[in-house]
Computed example of a mutant assay.
Amino acid sequence: MKKILTPSIDTFNSDNYHQLCDSLGKKDKDLQSVIDRYGYPPMWMRPNSFESLVHIILEQQVSLASALAALKKLQEKTIELTPLTVLKLSDEEMRACYVSRQKMVYIRGLANALESKTIDLKKLENLSNDLVRAKLIQLKGIGNWTIDVYLMFVLQRVDIFPIGDLAVINAIKKLKLLPKSTDKETIQGMSDNWQPYRTVASMILWHFYLSSSGSKMLPL
């Protein structure tokens, strides 16, 4: 069933994704050049689950391969990766799953918030981007980059620009032939030209990054 868009909660989906890509291509010839050369970007999505947020936490400041290895270990250890099964793991068991001491704190904090109903992932689907951010930012280890990725990949919000993502930043510099010294404030200003579809623009930029570098993994 096609999602109904509202002024406060606009999303992308399989029905409108290519149309949004085309709209951006008309506004920005460089984004259009990526589509012309490499095709439409994949519509990267993740389910709205504890496991998805754990995966995003594991991806913080490490390689995607390392994060995925840790996630798979946790999945194997718990059989079903839920807040309750994670809270039953000892420090030693989590370390054996390649989870750092710092991320143990983050993951357990998230698990406790979900178990206590302080955070309800299902209810987040009906909140504005700002309210989702306000709720999640209260949790230790959940910063703006993590929330951006959650909004984009899980809630499929259409107008998020992940200024903290190095792959997106580097893709813009390469695509736009910008000096390596170009600061984030300048790039943030450039992203305003892609409103209200900055998530989709980021997907195109990730697609460019992957396709031009020959990488097979999404650069989160």
Rank of each mutant, 00 (worst) to 15 (best):
K2N: 05
K3F: 13
K3W: 12
P7Y: 04
S8V: 05
I9R: 12
D10P: 02
N16E: 04
Y17F: 15
H18A: 04
Q19V: 12
L20E: 11
S23M: 08
S23W: 05
S23E: 13
L24V: 10
K26W: 02
K27Y: 02
K27C: 09
L31R: 06
L31G: 04
Q32I: 06
I35W: 01
R37W: 00
G39W: 11
Y40D: 14
R46V: 09
P47L: 10
N48T: 11
N48W: 13
S49T: 15
E51Y: 05
S52T: 15
L53W: 12
Q60R: 08
Q60I: 01
Q61N: 13
Q61K: 14
Q61S: 06
V62F: 07
S66Q: 13
L68D: 13
A69L: 11
A70L: 08
L71W: 03
L71K: 13
L74G: 05
L74N: 06
L74F: 12
Q75S: 01
T82Q: 01
P83M: 13
L84V: 09
T85S: 15
V86E: 03
L87N: 15
L87R: 05
M94H: 02
M94F: 07
C97R: 02
C97N: 02
V99K: 00
S100A: 07
K103R: 04
M104R: 10
V105G: 02
Y106N: 08
Y106D: 05
A111G: 12
N112D: 12
N112E: 14
A113C: 09
S116T: 14
S116I: 03
S116H: 09
I119S: 03
D120P: 03
L124Q: 02
L124W: 00
E125R: 03
R133Q: 03
L139E: 04
W145A: 10
T146K: 05
I147W: 00
V149C: 01
V149W: 08
L155S: 08
L155C: 07
Q156R: 14
R157Q: 02
I163C: 07
D165E: 15
A167R: 04
A167T: 10
N170T: 07
N170S: 12
N170I: 04
K173S: 06
K174L: 06
K174A: 15
L175C: 11
L175T: 09
L177H: 11
L178Q: 05
L178T: 08
P179H: 07
S181C: 04
K184T: 06
K184C: 01
K184A: 07
E185T: 14
T186G: 06
T186K: 14
I187Q: 08
I187P: 03
Q188C: 00
G189S: 15
D192S: 09
N193D: 14
A201R: 08
A201N: 07
S202V: 04
L205M: 14
Y209F: 15
S211Y: 10
G214W: 10
G214K: 10
K216C: 06
P219N: 10
P219K: 11
L220A: 11
